[in-house]
């Protein structure tokens, strides 16, 4: 990846690439379409994946060479989904490859658990757009620095 070799992230030169996905059968789409638009308007390149199985979502993330995967979950099954997603990444040796964020109808009570499993950040109901944008920028920047130092 040419981008990584260049080292420290330069926001002007390289846009952050994000894949947004609905995992599972739940069809509460408003959140994911809105956040996708917010990220796009903030200058990121957003690939809106719609409904995807976990396996497919990871395939698309690789093909599209994204920095960030954003999962939207409104069914209450967020802990199981994130566990499964992180397992899939580990299985393919990709657990350090992407910034993984999750949003949706998720109680604050579960944030710590989700982060422990492997989500880099969690956005519950009422999160303001700036917080999502800023968090993604910081996490991507941090990952770039880490991958440079390795």
């Amino acid at each position: 990846m040419l981008f990584k070799e260049r080292g420290v992230l330069n926001k002007v030169e390289k846009k952050i690439r994000v894949l947004t996905v609905k995992v599972g059968l739940d069809g509460h789409w408003r959140g994911v379409t809105t956040v996708s638009l917010i990220l796009k308007n903030a200058g990121m390149e957003v690939i809106f994946g719609g409904f995807q199985t976990i396996e497919n979502a990871v395939n698309v993330a690789i093909q599209e060479d994204v920095d960030v995967i954003g999962l939207s979950i409104h069914s209450g099954a967020h802990i199981t989904w994130i566990k499964k997603f992180v397992e899939e990444l580990k299985k393919r040796g990709l657990e350090k490859e992407f910034v993984l964020v999750v949003g949706g109808a998720i109680p604050e009570h579960d944030f710590a658990m989700l982060k422990q499993i492997g989500a880099h950040d969690v956005f519950g109901p009422g999160t303001l757009p700036d917080k999502i944008i800023q968090s993604i920028q910081e996490k991507v920047e941090k990952r770039e620095l880490e991958s440079k130092s390795v």
Binding site: G24, L25, D26, T53, I54, S75, G76, A77, T80, W81, K84
Partner: peptide
């Protein structure tokens, strides 16, 4: 099969 249907 194929859609992790049992999760939800």
């Amino acid at each position: 099969p194929g859609v992790d249907a049992d999760v939800e």
